[in-house]
Design a protein around this nucleic acid. Structure first.
Lengths: 232, 232
DNA sequence: TCGATTTTGTTAACGCGTTCACAAACTCTT
DNA sequence: AAGAGTTTGTGAACGCGTTAACAAAATCGA
């Protein structure tokens, strides 16, 4: 007989929102922020959906997982809806992140303006290169990787970003997990293995371009076939 | 009566590969490259799947869309399979890309080492800022955005990367499309609208972190509930 | 040569996500 | 007050992607 974890209780407060919806909520949030800046008070699902680049039905279904925050026949109160989504996404607080690897990409990330307005704060930079340690990047002093655990503990950081070469990725992930990090955003071109309970998301720049190249190739061969057809 | 496009012919050469599979093929390719470098000649779906971080059944199903390149009871010939995937992905040729926006992110992208080995070549850099135009970044001279159309035409570029602030994204996308670009990778925090026939993929750095923050928040509230349960 | 073993390729079931379509609920006009 | 017009929220159908399970096909040893 094995010891089982206590079964998850029914938790009415913590609704289960589909992953696909969670991935779109920040897009809606951005659109709503734009509307607030434009002074728009109210807004229908059609308009918001167009701004976000999604089907109106999808938008409404997504929002329905959060609750019933619209008014039939009217639409959504922009400010109110924005607050509800922000709350659901945990943006009522700021989230500190630590970036490991202060090369070109790490530097670009630490300088990225878009984070601050979305509840993300780059709290620490870490590297192994003695040349970089102690230098200041975007107003933050680069710390040695040996200090990772103490930095994470002291500043209560739970999110780490891997911006190193692919070869270093797994060992960096291990260090992050050991330091107490439970969410990792991995920019390195490598798959990292982590224990249960740790989330990993992967952004791979060259893979995105390779996918586009694949579709380009298909377009090109489709054109060739169309030519053949016309010529025939 | 409307004029319809000629219906797509049955094209046995151009099999229809699911999007989800296309997105994973580059991962397999990377794993296979690593195996080749290690001198591994043959490899079973289990091992390859583990390297790629996917279910073995999923790997085999993905590969089955390309054809039947394995040997039952044996596994896959690493070199041969690598070639087949590379061919399918269009990596037998190099794809030139133009990057618009040479800020922190654009510079990081143009310096990115991972592209060249994956059939991607950064062929041109473009910006609007007079301060940047004419300067050299990663060995490439930054051109004014007015030259975009001629650069794209002359070098037969079909893929463009948007690495500008969000506000400029739509107008840059319009310029790219006007210049003849048919695939766009958009790093700007904005949804861009493009005509049919143009592919757009979006990479949003802060959205990825917001998704992680959401899951962190849920972990935290789950912990609180667990505490309550124990205390009760 | 034949049976045991391994591993692929594929079919079928399942689950998640998307989309349609419509009832419910609100506003506005008369 | 009632009907016409809007727009949300959601049930149900559909399609895509994932996974399990197994037959087919190869190797290996006796």
């Amino acid at each position: 007989m094995t010891i089982l974890r206590s079964p998850r209780l029914a938790e009415p407060n913590v609704r289960d929102i589909p992953d696909a919806t969670v991935a779109r909520l920040p897009i809606y949030l951005r659109a709503l922020n734009a509307l607030v800046e434009q002074g728009v008070k109210s807004c229908a699902s059609n308009e918001l959906a167009e701004q976000a680049g999604v089907n109106p039905a999808k938008l409404r279904k997504d929002l329905s997982y959060l609750g019933s925050y619209g008014t039939r026949g009217v639409g959504y109160d922009v400010e109110y809806l924005r607050y509800q989504i922000a709350r659901e996404m945990g943006q009522t607080q700021d989230w500190d992140v630590v970036i490991v690897g202060v090369g070109n990409l790490g530097s670009a990330l630490s300088a990225y303006q878009g984070f601050s307005t979305r509840g993300i704060r780059v709290a620490a930079l870490v590297d192994t290169d003695p040349e970089r340690i102690g230098t200041e990047v975007s107003g933050i002093v680069v710390s040695p990787i040996d200090d990772l655990a103490s930095i994470v503990a002291e500043r209560e950081i739970s999110i780490g970003v891997i911006a190193t070469p692919g070869l270093a990725a797994q060992s960096v992930a291990d260090l992050l997990v050991a330091a107490g990090i439970t969410s990792i955003l991995n920019f390195a071109p490598a798959i990292v293995q982590v224990p249960d309970g740790v989330d990993v998301r992967k952004v791979d720049l060259s893979i995105e371009l390779q996918i586009l190249a694949y579709h380009e190739q298909r377009k090109a061969s489709a054109d060739r076939n169309a030519d053949k057809e016309v010529t025939a």
